[in-house]
Design a binder for these strands. Structure first.
Lengths: 223, 223
DNA sequence: GAACGCGTCAATGTATGCATTAAAAAATTT
DNA sequence: AAATTTTTTAATGCATACATTGACGCGTTC
């Protein structure tokens, strides 16, 4: 009895394109006319067009009149922008959450994600680690409430996803990061709003610094 | 020689609908089938549909399958969410800007907006005041850089616009607010990053408190 | 050989038609 | 009269057609 309500072609196109972009299966900078996307997806231009409009609104694609849809590459400055925003938003969300105190379910969700990170780390499975990391952050956003915040941050993650996956492989295992997550969870549980804000912010600052450093040393102009 | 490059119907529909929603000329909660919007705008469903998809992505409209497009009403919780985000984002932008030091052009833009607020205040012209206020915040975002931040904050403004306009009329003249803007500009010029962050944050906190208070006392469940 | 004009082509922007299907209304049963 | 089934209606989701128009190549002019 799997929830199998029929999905519209527009939604299907949206999901598939988004997935392809995230996984780099559609390379950054790839550009093609609508008709081509439509053919690849096996549907007419109409739903593809609608999906592309959404993807454009979410910053994954650029619709250039008469030249087709282009998968937006991520440059260092983009990552800069994204981290700047995350740095402002997420620590604040964490602080609010700590202030209010977290539900049991929320704590469990965060703990589970954290466990996932540790297991992945031990197994040196970076994809699993990235997934658990995502899960952690999403759980935190959900626990903190604020639909708009969650939606927006998730769009930022989407944009940054490719770069994160790639750079993750160009450095040592994210042990430090994992433990920072543990520390944040601990502070959340203890309701240390101010402290969690500071720690989270430092966490993001370090992550940004590292990531930008990698992009620089490896001369990765764009991903 | 007015910039009159031809605008597509889709863009036209988007602009017009957005304007109608912002100005309350399309009331919150208004719901109609695509065909009706299309007729009112004098075009076929296709471009209207595309415009509606964008408006949905920006949080102004909800597309309910088979029931038409609904202009989203703003409730107190929505304003809560929006101010929570502004509180996290804008002070940080201001702090960055102060840190970096502002260009002369930026300073002038901010000063001009501030003057506009003062003039409007003296003339008791609330619409003009709101416009100058917007101008101030937009100038600040532009000066601070970060495209994504600017775009996102502007979408938040769009969502909140109706409520702000209405509540503005239900309270005394925004003198305090105007002077806070002056203070912020002053701190920006002097490069007082930490101080400007604090002051701006307090500014937003006060604004949120006032606005929510008004919604409450006037029993405005939704706008 | 650079600049310009022109014709071709391809891609979009938009209108339109129609099958599908959720919702509403009507009819029927209990 | 309530519940259930059937019928009708209306709105969408999508495909398709086509006019428009920017991009590009080619030849012509200076």
């Amino acid at each position: 009895m799997t929830e199998k309500l029929k999905i519209s072609r527009t939604d299907d196109a949206y999901e598939r394109l988004r997935a392809e972009i995230r996984t780099n299966s559609l390379s950054p900078g790839y550009q093609a006319p609508e008709a081509e996307y439509a053919m690849r997806l096996g549907m007419s231009r109409t739903p593809v067009r609608e999906a592309l409009i959404r993807l454009e609104a979410e910053g994954l694609v650029e619709l250039k009149p008469r030249r087709g849809a282009r998968v937006l590459p991520i440059k260092a400055e983009d990552m800069q922008e994204i981290y700047e925003l995350l740095k402002a938003i997420e620590p604040e969300a964490a602080a609010e959450l700590a202030q209010r105190g977290l539900e049991d379910a929320d704590r469990r969700a965060l703990q589970k994600a954290l466990d996932g990170m540790r297991v992945a780390l031990a197994a040196k499975d970076l994809d699993a680690w990235a997934k658990a990391d995502d899960q952690y952050h999403v759980s935190l956003l959900e626990a903190a409430g604020n639909q708009r915040r969650k939606a927006f941050v998730m769009h930022l993650y989407d944009q940054a996803h490719r770069a994160r996956i790639i750079t993750l492989r160009l450095r040592e295992m994210p042990e430090k990061s994992t433990e920072e997550h543990a520390q944040i969870l601990d502070l959340l549980c203890r309701g240390e709003a101010d402290k969690v804000r500071v720690v989270f912010r430092e966490h993001r600052e370090r992550a940004a610094r590292e990531l930008l450093g990698i992009l620089d040393t490896f001369r990765l102009q764009q991903l």
